[in-house]
Design a protein around this nucleic acid. Sequence first.
DNA 1: TTTCATGTATAGACTGT
DNA 2: AACAGTCTATACATGAA
Length: 479
Amino acid sequence: MNSTAQDAEDSSAPAIPAIPLAFTDQNDTPGFQEGLISPELAQWIRFRAEKLKLRLDDRKWAAELVNHLRDSLLEFLKKSDDQPYFQLARVLNSGSYYEMVKIHNANEFDIMLTFPPPSRLNWTELGQYQGLFYQVSLCRPTHSPIRSFLLEDGLTISASKFISEMYLLVRRFIRTYKVSDNSCHWVVNRKRVNSPAVTLSLLEVGNGKQELLSVDVVPALEVSSKQGWPQAARAGPDVDHWLGKKAKRALISQNCFFVPKRPPGRNLDDIAKEGWRISFSHIEKQIISSHGNKKTCCESAATKCCRKQCLKLLKCLIEGLKQRYTKELDALCSYHGKTAFLHTLSTRAEDSLWARRQLPVCFMHLLGALEGHARSGLLPHFFIPNANLFAQPTFPRKALVFLTNALEEQRTHGLPLLMPPAPAPPMEICSPYETQPLQYPDLQKTSPVENVSNKMLFFVAVAVVVFVCLVACWKHMAN
DNA sequence: TTTCATGTATAGACTGT
DNA sequence: AACAGTCTATACATGAA
């Protein structure tokens, strides 16, 4: 009976695998041995990857709202005389949506607003951050409107002034900006002290609780490629054997950015409080979109690879872990996953290793790689090899040990966090997948479109169950 | 496999200095 | 007239269905 109801909703759903599925640590790659993935688990991984796709309707709905907001904001800044420097803003879409690795819903967008400095920049590494954070200043005094963001020395660009002014203008913009159909409205979220973003949320009118979309607007200072990247990143990412030396040169010859994010920690000195963080978002996006060892990767059905799917699954697992162990894994974020992913791609370069069919094996490999980084406490920033994203105190020792164990548990117990909730009781009607929001309440923020389809599915499931019951009764009576 | 919508890169037109 | 910056049309890539 249960399976009938399930099948009615999702005929492609594989059977729930027997748990635990043995993964042992015998291999030198932590947590990975090819032969040990059971066919059931492999099927589940494929199935889960399918489920992470964004729906076209959702994308269309969200893209229209976000693009209109973005274009209107840009127009507002261009016309604004209050802060003439912001008239120079240019848009650079970044983050997982535009990298095509956003999962579950098209509900989070990252938009960088980039600004060219009036002259060459000087930057000084802030100590103890291994080249991630910088004091940024102009080489010479200027009459450019950027003046209003400078400190008393007339040269140093103040990150706090920059982001505060951005807030001011975005708030001013939002006061008059209306969503076309009036059913929702954008609000500016509260300022967060360590965040470089002005975060906007789209709320339903009359239901202030439910956030339908969120957009991070991140201002960024552009460093001309003529100046080159800071010393800590000068060597460029380790992609020689993967993307090739020529591709690497092309990457290094691009601009990089500073975003107004101060370094973590309390009791910062006055210089650190005005610190900027280096950003390679646009390069990351480029690498992820042209990710092949050969040019032909993903060009045809025959050369399709599973790299992006692996990253999506890892992001899903990380979200799940953070949901399940909120406090313990506070320090963990999706960027750790992305970094481990990039390292894995650069060492496991050959396209054939990432063939579409190999998804389960590749994902387990990636998971093992992240576990390995956690176990060794070493996860170098992909562009700044000396910056360890698992270094303390940013990533506390305790959290690292917890993460190592959590990842090991996932690997050795058949990925319970990627699985549906425990086997359903006999009369359960809904398919396990549809009940997923119960397990991870915030992972899936339902859009209006989704609500409709959920109701439809539920209705169909109930109808099928009733029908099957009737048939069973009828047969019983006939006997 | 195909069809479609969205996102991106590019060239050439346009505009103001 | 020359130039840089901006806008626009177009083709192409990507991924969902």
